[in-house]
C-alpha cells in the first residue's frame, strides 16, 4: 500500500460528501436549509481543489480554492441580507 492511495481515497470521500450535501439541497424543506447545504458544497469544492493541488503538485489549485471560499462566503451573506429584509416586511 502506497501513501498516494490515501490521497485518492480522500478525493473519493470529499466527492461523496459533496453528493450527500446536494441531496439536502434538493430535499431541504425551507430556503435557509438549502443555503446551508450550498455553503457546505462550496466548502467541499474548495477541499477538492486543495486535494487537486496535493495530487498534481500544481500551486494554481490553491488559488482556485481561495476564490471558491470567497465566493461561497459572499453568496451566503448576500442571501441572508435578502432573506432578513423579506422577513421584516
Amino acid at each position: 500500500m502506497r501513501p498516494e492511495m490515501l490521497v485518492y481515497a480522500a478525493l473519493v470521500l470529499v466527492s461523496a460528501a459533496l453528493l450527500i450535501a446536494f441531496v439536502r439541497v434538493v430535499r431541504g424543506p425551507t430556503l435557509p436549509d438549502r443555503v446551508v447545504a450550498v455553503d457546505l458544497i462550496g466548502v467541499c469544492a474548495a477541499g477538492l481543489s486543495v486535494l487537486g493541488a496535493a495530487v498534481s503538485g500544481q500551486r494554481g489549485f490553491l488559488d482556485a480554492a481561495v476564490v471558491i471560499a470567497l465566493l461561497g462566503f459572499l453568496g451566503t451573506v448576500a442571501y441572508a441580507r435578502y432573506a432578513e429584509k423579506e422577513s421584516l416586511k
Partner: peptide, 19 residues
C-alpha cells in the same frame, strides 16, 4: 500527508451526513 488528508476528508463526509 495521507493521514492528515484522510482525517480531513472523513470530517467532511461526517459533516455532509450530519446535514
Amino acid at each position: 500527508t495521507g493521514i492528515l488528508v484522510l482525517i480531513g476528508a472523513l470530517l467532511m463526509l461526517l459533516a455532509a451526513v450530519g446535514v
